[in-house]
Nucleic acid binder design. Structure first.
Lengths: 217, 217
DNA sequence: ACGTCTGGATAGTGTCACTATCCAAGCATG
DNA sequence: CATGCTTGGATAGTGACACTATCCAGACGT
């Protein structure tokens, strides 16, 4: 298919597709002549993944390029590609009202380490990108007057475990390695709004349940 | 305290505080003279809440103003204020690669309705802000080649229920109504990165568990 | 052959959260 | 009272970033 058709099928304007080509988020099409190129289904899939990352995930273009490079890296095992790709997706930045003092960060680190131990998760995770993001966020929370310890974080970790089980179940439906890696990135990003929307609905439900005033919500 | 002290204590520059005052995110201080005003602890708390909303939640300034108006609305019951405030917080926008066709949206609505019924949650939630966000996201997911039915969403809803229980438990630690409403907004926003970071750690853990290759992650 | 479409290059737009600069009116000290 | 610093307020500017508008010359289709 040509650029115009790729645009029509994806709903992304030709100008934007050109922009992604320029930025290296989308591999160039097969050149037919000096002014002609052809795209295929892989471009369409990749384009959708790019949109998911940028629009839903809020991932900057430069970071998306890195994530996609990991997705494409043939030299890695499936697991490494999957991990590299997913961990390259940036986390939402925690509050920076005060940059979190060194003491707050140290305390947060201690609590997160305790949490990992309690969960039986490897302590190296503390230095992984999501682990660091967690420490930063917990430190920021403390700075905002909402201190958390391992005990308080535990229920959220249990909830996260359930979500992760669902994620992995879903991934197993995909057969090819290529699809699995792409799906892991796409679903990591795309299920975030799902989980957060459900959380708000569950908050309403739980609040109604506790106060016995279902009609208020 | 004066503006300079408010700035020092919050870590927010005076220029930014002036900007928030101008935008109506922060109520004006008590005027001491034509060129002097005094701020107190409520300003400091509010300022932290504003930062949490804008920096962590990514809430636009205009929306933050609405959320804060709901927080301040004395005419509402605690529950209404809480609900109004939290539901005014925008959801992450779902993919808009194709705006999701009408059929996709209708199908998504059906599945979400089935999910609500299955959970025993009120069907009116379907039209609440988070409910609509969920429908839009599910429709977008279908458009990206990841269809979901009520069955597939259920595990995420279970995870969300756990998170919501933890949220409500946490809220009960706050005594005054003012604090509870503020905390509900702050924690709704601030726990999002916590939950998402934990989810990624849990994904790694779960993947390692399933493949028996813990050293890969 | 001739109007349309193509891919490529370049520069511009819109949004949005700040931020730099001025200004005139206090306040604090000699 | 003078002088220099600070204060709150108003105005315009900045920087980041994801696009987007315009041009262009070379195919392609009829």
């Amino acid at each position: 298919m040509r650029l115009a058709e790729l645009s029509a099928r994806s709903g992304v304007s030709t100008a934007t597709i050109k922009f992604y080509l320029r930025e290296g988020l989308l591999p160039p099409g097969r050149r037919l002549s000096a002014t002609q190129a052809e795209y295929d289904g892989t471009h369409l899939r990749r384009l959708r993944l790019v949109r998911a990352l940028i629009q839903v995930g809020g991932v900057p273009v430069a970071t998306a390029r890195e994530v996609l490079a990991a997705v494409d890296d043939e030299g890695l095992t499936r697991h490494d590609r999957l991990g590299a790709a997913v961990w390259a997706i940036p986390q939402p930045a925690p509050a920076r009202t005060r940059e979190a003092t060194a003491e707050e960060t140290a305390a947060a680190r201690t609590q997160v380490a305790a949490l990992l131990q309690r969960l039986g998760w490897p302590s190296e995770d503390l230095d992984s990108p999501p682990g660091q993001a967690l420490v930063r966020t917990v430190a920021a929370l403390a700075g905002l007057g909402y201190p958390h310890d391992a005990e308080g974080l535990l229920p959220y970790a249990r909830a996260a475990e359930r979500a992760a089980e669902a994620d992995l179940d879903m991934l197993e439906h995909f057969t090819s390695e290529e699809e699995q890696v792409e799906a892991s990135v796409a679903l990591t990003v795309l299920h975030e709004p799902v989980l957060l929307a459900l959380r708000r609905l569950a908050q309403a439900q739980e609040s109604a349940r506790r106060t016995g005033r279902p009609e208020e919500w």
